[in-house]
Simulated scan of single mutants.
Amino acid sequence: MRKLLPALVGLLGLAVSSTVFAADYKIMAPAAPGGGWDQTARSMQTALQDESISGSVQVTNVPGAGGTIGLAQFVNQASGDPSQLIVGGYVMVGAILTNASPVTLDQVTPIARLTGEYEALVVPASSDIKDMAGLVEKLKADPGSVSWGGGSAGGTDHITAGLIAKAVGVDPTKVNYIAFSGGGEALAAILGGQVTVGISGYGEFESQIKAGQLRLIGISSENKVDGIDAPTFKEGGVDVAIQNWRMVAAPPGLSDEQKAAVGADVEKMVKSASWQKILADKGWADTYLAGDEFQAQLKKDIDSTSAILKEVGLVK
């Protein structure tokens, strides 16, 4: 028994140390509950905890202005704290530009791109629009009569609506786009017929599509997507393809060691069975990219988004 005691104590010590040193995180979703950022933050919460990568993960929502209100709060209040993370992505890139935000992604510590998701166009089941051709017909006849319900101004949804208009010969600046701060609000407006067409990531509409409440008239992928019964925009006669992406970032002011530790936890998460199941269940593509490669890609995405927003008249 005496010989076993040191071994038992050692094992107990390992168990205790792994519990003590499991990182606790607070993840900000800079949007209202129900949307893609909120879903991403809560999916991270689930995977980090289920895989025992983190002892405790809390999610907070700070909606407004395409994530720039939350971004400013995060940069100002979380600096130097490796336990705090923020979810963002393509939408935030556009919102920073359209809102002329004084706080930009240059002021956070990018950790990784996590997911990609195609844009879906939906109408209420009772709508007289049956397909992309029907939407295009209405848009050409009177652009202002077609109201588009989606996420924040200047985000992926807004950009996609502008690109669709441009592709069919309609002035993108005449698009009647109605921005909502959260996916739940947008969904209620679409289901209630307060807007003509809804535009967002497929995952935000999936359950209502399957329930027959919404009609899916197009998906923004280059090619057909397995498991999604809808034509691409291109198959519907509109030459547009676009993919939204989401990322996670840490605050400014982290040491190289802190940044590496956060990055290692995120890498464990994205490679875990829990995360891969979440991606499959939600129809999200695994677009994981980290480190210097992600920072370089982020810069390219910011530059290309600026060009697109100028083209569709959202940024001068």
Rank of each mutant, 00 (worst) to 15 (best):
Q45M: 02
Q58W: 07
A23H: 00
G150E: 03
G13C: 09
S101K: 10
V195C: 09
V57I: 04
A95T: 01
M269E: 03
I129Q: 11
T160P: 00
D128L: 14
T156F: 06
S274I: 02
V225E: 13
D157T: 02
Y90C: 01
S52G: 01
G70V: 10
I219G: 14
G201D: 09
K174G: 00
F21P: 04
T109R: 13
V146R: 09
T104H: 08
M1T: 15
I129S: 13
Q45I: 00
S274H: 03
L191K: 14
S56T: 01
D256W: 12
I278S: 08
L5V: 14
A31G: 03
Q295T: 14
A273L: 11
E185D: 15
Q297Y: 09
W245Q: 13
A7S: 10
P63W: 06
P124L: 02
A179N: 06
S127T: 12
T104D: 01
L135D: 07
L4A: 10
V91R: 08
V9S: 08
L191Q: 09
A290Y: 01
D81G: 02
L12E: 03
G263S: 08
L5T: 12
V266C: 00
L11V: 15
V122C: 05
G182Y: 00
S145G: 05
G253L: 09
A188S: 14
P6V: 08
A29K: 01
G203S: 14
A249P: 13
I27V: 09
A261Q: 09
G237P: 14
G70E: 02
E117N: 05
G35S: 02
K299S: 02
N223M: 06
D301Q: 09
G183F: 00
K3P: 05
I111R: 06
T60Y: 15
G34K: 02
I96G: 05
V312E: 06
L163C: 03
L139Q: 10
I199Y: 12
G184V: 04
W148T: 04
G34I: 03
L289Y: 08
V87T: 12
